[in-house]
Design a protein around this nucleic acid. Sequence first.
DNA 1: TAGATTGTTAATCGATTAACAATC
DNA 2: TAGATTGTTAATCGATTAACAATC
Lengths: 222, 222
Amino acid sequence: MENLPIDPAAGGEERAPIAEPTLRRLPVYHNYLKNLDSSKTHAISCTQIAQDLHLTPIQVRKDLACTGIVGKPKTGYDTQALRLAIEDFLGWNNPNDALLFGAGHLGLALLSYDGFASYGLDIVAAVDADPAKQGAGPRDKKILPLEKAAGLIRRMHIKIAIIAVPEAAAQSIADLCVSCGIKAIWNFAPAKITVPADVTVQHENLASSLAVLSKKLSLRGE
Amino acid sequence: MENLPIDPAAGGEERAPIAEPTLRRLPVYHNYLKNLDSSKTHAISCTQIAQDLHLTPIQVRKDLACTGIVGKPKTGYDTQALRLAIEDFLGWNNPNDALLFGAGHLGLALLSYDGFASYGLDIVAAVDADPAKQGAGPRDKKILPLEKAAGLIRRMHIKIAIIAVPEAAAQSIADLCVSCGIKAIWNFAPAKITVPADVTVQHENLASSLAVLSKKLSLRGE
DNA sequence: TAGATTGTTAATCGATTAACAATC
DNA sequence: TAGATTGTTAATCGATTAACAATC
C-alpha cells in the first residue's frame, strides 16, 4: 500500500483518499489501545482487537494499514507503535486551536471535557452573547463577549469553530466564522448551515442518531 | 415497492430492512419540511429538496419511498402528508419514555433541549449519584438519586436509557440498565460499553466525528 | 399535448469480506 | 518445522446513481 506517508510534506503524488468509515473507526482503535494494560501487552493482533471490538480481523487489518503501521506475522502490532501511528495519522500531536460559540449547557459540557486535548483539539476560549455567561468558565477557560470572536480568530489564526448556539443563531454565527477565515465548523446546533465550498462542516445530528436508535428498538420489539 | 406498511401490526411477511444512511437522512428531510413556509408551499418536488439539501433528486426519491409516501408527477409531494409520513415511519407520534443518567453539563444540555419531544423521545427524569445535583432540573424535570433508577424503569416500563456519565461509570450504569429491562441505550460517554445481544446501543462518538473534521481540514490545506 | 416529475429496474461505485501467498 | 498472523489481490455485498417508462 504505502499511501499516506507520515510526513505530510512528502507527498506530491496522488494520495489514497481514506474511507470515512475507516476514519471513524481509528479513534475507536486508539481508545481500545489506551485502555490496554501496556505493561502487560506489548503486542496485539488484529484477531484480538477484532474480537474485543466486535469487528472482523480483515477489517481491522485494512483499517490499520492506512496509518502505515507494519505488523509482525505471528505476533501482531507493537501496541505503543500502533497507538502513535494512529495519533500521527489523525494529526493528534499537532493540536488545532478552536473557538467555541455558545456557553449554554452544551457549550459548557464541551468546554469542560478535558479529553479533546488528546484528540488534537484545543478549545482556546468560548464566546457568548449573554453577559451573564461571560467570565471564567470550566478548566480556566474564558467565556468572552461575542464581539471578541472576530479579533481572536484573526489574531490566533484559528481555523476551527465549534457552534453550540441555539438553532436561530447558528447561520449568522457561521457567516461570522467564514468571514474571519474559519475553515472547519463543528456544528452542534440542530440547524442546517450554509457555507462556501472551501469550508468544511461536520454536523452533529442528534435527530439522526435518535432515528436509528428508535427504529432499531421498534424493530427488535417484534 | 410497498414495503414497511404504516401499521406495524400488519406485516407478518419479511419487511424490507431500511438502509441506515437513508434512516439518518429522514430527520434531515423532516427538518427541511418544518422550516418551509407551509402557507405558501403545499407541494414540493424531489428536485427542489435535493437542490436545497445538496443531494441528488434520485436519492431523495428513493429515501422518501421508504416512508410509503406517494407523490404526484409534475407537482411532487404534498408537504403536509410527507412530513406526517416521515413522522409516522420514524415512530415520532408514539413517544418513547427515556431515563437520563448523569446531570453534568452534558446531561443538563440534553434535559434542557425541548426538541426531543417532537422526535418521539420523552426524557421523564434524570438521575445522578451526586446529592448536590439532585432536585429540580431544567424544564421541570426532576433529578433523582441514582437509587431511584431501577424502580422508575420497572414501574414505567422504560425501554430507553441515555448515558451521560463519566467514562469510568458508564459500564456499571449500562449493567444496571440491562438488569432492569432497558432495551436501547444512547451512550454519550466516551467509553465502549458491553451489553447482551438483545439490547441496542447507539454510541455518540465525538472522537470519530472530530477525526473526520480534522482530517478533512488537513487535506483541504494542501 | 408537451414537459416535468414520479416510481422502479438496471448499472455503477465503494466498502466489506474472502482468499491466499509471504513471513516470522 | 508448523502454525498463526500479516499484507494484498479478488469477490461480494450494499448503497448510490443512472436510465427510462408511467403519469399527471
